[in-house]
Simulated assay, not measured.
Amino acid sequence: MKQFIDFIPLLLFFIVYKTEPRLVEFAGQHFELGGIYSATAVLIISSLVVYGALFIRQRRLEKGQLLTLVACLVFGGLTLAFHSETFLKWKAPVVNWLFALAFLGSHFIGDKVLIKRIMGHALTLPDAVWNRLNLAWIAFFLFCGAANLFVAFTFQDYWVDFKVFGSLGMTVLFLVAQGIYLSRHLHDSDPTTPKPEE
């Protein structure tokens, strides 16, 4: 569920981006609604609201949530400050690659790979399986970053659609594949599960 909370600001961004640009009045001020820049402002505001609510509820933000929020503020802020969508196009690739770097670094720093630190409280698996799963997450984040970058600068008319639905679709497919992979190994770690006859 937590993975999909991250998509709430992205969906609001998409809705505003697709809205036909028009002036709206709020608190005696006129604002343009629709298009990339108002959508970026909505992305920043909704991210602050969503992650602010999570912080109030949980008393903390997970590192991934904090990274996503900071990236949104930095790249979204630069987009608005310089009136250039190029900065926003780099957000998804950079965030994905930073996640890949964190998962990769966990192979060399600490006593557990990152995916085991995240999911180890819920599952007991052999270290070899955790390592393979961690490598799969690295590959996933590298691929997502590269795909977002390629679409953003090659198919500029579709990059927002891909940013929202492509990213969501890739995440869902990867989580399903991860579930299938894990289901093959769960019985190995449960001593009460009878082994099949050889």
Rank of each mutant, 00 (worst) to 15 (best):
R22A: 10
H30C: 06
I45T: 06
K18H: 14
L48C: 11
A27F: 12
V42Q: 02
S38Q: 07
E62A: 06
G52L: 11
H30S: 11
T19A: 14
A39M: 07
L23K: 11
G35T: 13
G28M: 03
Q65V: 00
L54T: 12
L61Y: 03
F14Y: 06
G34L: 08
K18C: 14
G64P: 01
L33G: 01
Y51E: 09
K63F: 13
G34N: 08
F13K: 04
V50E: 02
A39G: 05
A27I: 09
T68W: 14
L61R: 03
F13R: 07
V50C: 04
L43M: 12
T19P: 10
G52I: 12
L12H: 10
Y37V: 14
Q65R: 01
S47G: 06
R60I: 06
E32C: 04
S38D: 10
F13D: 07
I36C: 14
E25Q: 02
G34A: 13
A39N: 07
L61V: 02
I15N: 00
K63I: 10
P21L: 15
Y51R: 05
V50S: 01
V42Y: 00
S38G: 08
V42E: 03
T19Y: 10
L43V: 06
Y17A: 09
L67R: 11
R57F: 13
K63V: 13
L67Q: 09
E62Y: 06
V24K: 06
L61K: 04
F14S: 00
G52A: 15
L23F: 10
G28A: 02
L54N: 11
L12D: 15
R57Q: 09
E32G: 05
F26S: 08
K63L: 11
L54H: 08
I45Q: 04
L61F: 02
H30I: 08
R60T: 11
L54R: 15
G64S: 05
F55V: 12
F31R: 03
S47N: 09
G34P: 05
I45Y: 00
T40W: 01
F31Q: 04
G34F: 03
A27P: 11
